[in-house]
């Protein structure tokens, strides 16, 4: 039995300290993904909180033969999609074919690449642009690019067709390319 599986069994048996150990083992990974998605600490902390609350409340549905990290990723992705920013109501959480076009044309209202490129920090420009992506594109990009999940795994976790996930990734990469070109021009490197 793996260390995680052992901890889960102990939690199920009423050992409350086991859940604390479980959180301590995975909180950095959860927070990292949440921050990559949200781009700020306030929202990242909210998302990470939601993740562990959902984990605690659904431990009885966790299959002992499954990898906890895969299950966690599924919960993280859904927590990111469900998350509403503290500062304002964010309604573009819908997924699926119907919502796809609307999502492609719905940038987040944060500073754009032009402002960010002033300091010549391309990484910062791209990070900012990730924060401006619609939620669907953002979570697919974060899970594929940063976390290295396969597109089929992301599709399964989100309950989407793989083709939809591919289009989300392509749309995200397209936006980042544009931001990169813009940043290079603004920084005087030439396109």
């Amino acid at each position: 039995m793996s260390a995680d599986a052992d901890l889960i069994s102990r939690v199920a048996g009423g050992d409350s300290s086991a859940f604390q150990t479980l959180v301590e083992r995975h909180r950095s990974m959860v927070y990292r993904v949440a921050y990559q998605f949200a781009g700020n600490h306030h929202d990242a902390e909210d998302i990470a909180q939601d993740v562990f609350i959902k984990v605690f409340r659904s431990l009885d549905r966790f299959r002992q033969d499954a990898q906890l990290t895969s299950w966690l990723y599924r919960i993280i992705m859904n927590a990111c999609i469900d998350h509403k920013r503290r500062s304002r109501f964010n309604a573009n959480a819908a997924f699926g074919e119907e919502a796809e076009q609307r999502m492609l044309n719905a940038p987040e209202e944060t500073p754009g690449p032009e402002e960010r490129a002033y300091g010549g920090e391309i990484g910062q420009v791209l990070e900012s642009e990730i924060g401006r992506l619609p939620k669907g594109q953002r979570i697919v990009f974060v899970m594929r690019h940063h976390q290295g999940m396969k597109l089929c795994e992301i599709a399964e976790a989100l309950g989407l067709a793989e083709g939809t996930v591919k289009r989300q990734l392509h749309a995200a990469v397209h936006r980042l390319r544009q931001a990169l070109r813009h940043a290079r021009v603004t920084a005087g490197e030439g396109a």
Partner: peptide
């Protein structure tokens, strides 16, 4: 360009703890 994007994002700080 994709390589530049990967390298630029890899250069960003790894944030894995609260502020």
């Amino acid at each position: 360009e994709l390589g530049v994007i990967r390298d630029a994002l890899a250069s960003r700080p790894d944030v894995s703890t609260p502020a």
